[in-house]
Design a protein around this nucleic acid. Structure first.
Length: 265
DNA sequence: ATGGTCGAGAGTCGA
């Protein structure tokens, strides 16, 4: 089974790109972030025509997440628990049936948090704390669980080309990094780092100032796997070539192969 | 030093 996460930066602007990538890469399950669309406007018909089920959690203008899956959804949950006043669409969970039982997959879009010193940064840190609590609870189920998303965190200096440029950025603050580290320490494995030392591997290059051409990148998109999922991890890749396509997203897909077979009804 | 590029969607806001 192949699973992917990709911040597509606007599903309507990226639909041709997305369809081309789905045909080329042929993932079974895809976590999308920054769909920037309400659910009713999501271009589901074209995606369904390629054999995917589609579940979305969108909002007007920005944010928004989705899961595409060749497997039928047994269950879908929207919104990260822990704050009913949080209206931002950043979290969707799907449950699927596989040869090894249930597989849970989350598509998450963690708050950016910039600029530090505004209310945006404490919102990011509070969201991360909620996410840690939720992840800890889910871990107790001892099921294969994959948390795919744009974490908006640079975990280590080896995940950024020019660390000194990010010292004042929310993505590289000690508090952001510490929360990500706690997620790792509770048992979630970064699939890409598990199969590659990941040093100098990036998943995002800014549109501005020729960042792509200069390989001025950061690695902030992750497939984090519970022990029961990482036990089945066969390979992981960053599909970097997609950044060189016409009209690209500023992020590229991160993918992994698991020794799990879908149960098709 | 400043702004540099995008997407969404109708004026800026978010990244």
């Amino acid at each position: 089974m192949k699973i992917a996460t990709w911040n597509i930066n606007g599903v309507k602007a990226r639909i041709d790109n997305l369809l081309h990538w789905l045909r080329e890469s042929d993932p079974d399950i895809v976590c999308l972030q920054e769909i920037k669309s309400v659910d009713e406007a999501f271009p589901r018909l074209e995606i369904e025509a390629l054999g995917y089920h589609v579940e979305t959690h969108g909002q007007k203008g920005f944010n928004g997440v989705a899961i595409l899956s060749k497997l039928r959804f047994d269950e879908v949950n929207r919104r990260l628990p822990g704050d009913d006043s949080d209206e931002q669409a950043r979290f969707i969970e799907g449950v699927f049936s596989t040869s090894r039982g249930a597989l849970r997959v989350v598509s998450l879009y963690l708050p950016n948090g910039n600029p530090v010193g505004t209310e945006k940064f404490p919102y990011k840190i509070a969201w991360m704390k909620r996410f840690e609590q939720w992840a800890q609870d889910r871990l107790a189920l001892e099921e294969p669980l994959i948390l795919g998303g744009d974490y908006n965190v640079i975990p280590m200096p080896s995940d950024v080309r020019y660390p000194d440029n990010w010292l004042d950025d929310a993505l590289f603050q000690p508090e952001s990094r510490a929360s990500f580290r706690r997620l790792s320490n509770m048992g979630f494995i970064d699939a890409y780092r598990e199969v590659d030392d990941a040093s100098g591997a990036y998943s995002f290059w800014d549109y501005q100032a020729g960042a792509w051409q200069k390989n001025n990148g950061i690695r902030i998109d992750f497939l984090m796997m519970s022990p029961e999922a990482s036990d089945r991890l066969r390979s992981a890749d960053i599909e970097k070539h997609v950044r060189g396509w016409e009209k690209p997203s500023d992020h590229v897909p991160v993918v992994a192969h698991l020794d799990l077979l879908p149960v098709v009804f």
